[in-house]
Design a protein around this nucleic acid. Sequence first.
DNA 1: TATTTATCCCCCACTTTTCCCCACAGTATA
DNA 2: TATACTGTGGGGAAAAGTGGGGGATAAATA
Lengths: 143, 143
Amino acid sequence: MFIGEFHHNIDDKGRIAIPSKYRDILGNSFVITRGIEHCIYVYPNDTFNHIVTKLESLPFTKKDARAFTRFFMSGATAIELDKQGRVNIPSPLITYANLSKKCVIVGTGDRLEIWDEDAFNEFMSSCNDEMSDIAENLFEEKI
Amino acid sequence: MFIGEFHHNIDDKGRIAIPSKYRDILGNSFVITRGIEHCIYVYPNDTFNHIVTKLESLPFTKKDARAFTRFFMSGATAIELDKQGRVNIPSPLITYANLSKKCVIVGTGDRLEIWDEDAFNEFMSSCNDEMSDIAENLFEEKI
DNA sequence: TATTTATCCCCCACTTTTCCCCACAGTATA
DNA sequence: TATACTGTGGGGAAAAGTGGGGGATAAATA
């Protein structure tokens, strides 16, 4: 399971180090793709394939299905770690997530997310205040 | 599976390089045809034949079925890679997709799509804002 | 039929990008 | 203090993408 928050730098070649404690979970081969809030998702292969299977069950004749599949699949790249434990982020994703140098890697259970540090701070502070309201409607019963 | 986003140029002769990592999947012979959002779809033969079978199951007495089948089938061309890994896009498709020079090739799971770069950026930025909403309604349950 | 024109491929050469390897610095651990 | 591990930076070889020239084939015209 992915938890925690790590601050790493992305270099000029678009490489960023994956926190060492997660390299074992991810293994040598995994997937990164566009995430919804202008961040990057990092999925183990199994998890990614599961989502793809769901997406492929949607017909391409539906507009929203096309749009989301395009969004999700076009951003995806099969990744292998280099010997230093880094991944190479494709430039479209760097642009999408607006990564400059300082990045944040956060664990969110079934995936990692890579954020630009400023964007992450902004997002977190923007919803810290509302968190009470957000939590309010998540569940109807005791969890 | 086709994933990722690649920026290639189409030259004056109408040739564009297929990303090298997908040449193996496509093999030597495949199909390109008109796509729905003024882009070009690239299908392996098997996938294309499967869709054709589905379309043929629609009655030609239905107006929409006739229109879509005409749209999809008339744009189709059997393609072979040249020795440099490029395809020759027929001029009607170049016109249809409004390809000038800079193009984007995106993988969307079962196919590749070829877009004019400007058109692609416009499309993606137009639905980036809605992507959260689109995702919201795609599935009702955990996927 | 002969000649011209156009189109399509293949080949070669150049440029750019990507990937792999090595090296260094900082931190934690023994 | 010595050792291992993690994160960071850069150099060089190999691969991928790009552009143009030329020859073969086919269509068009005289």
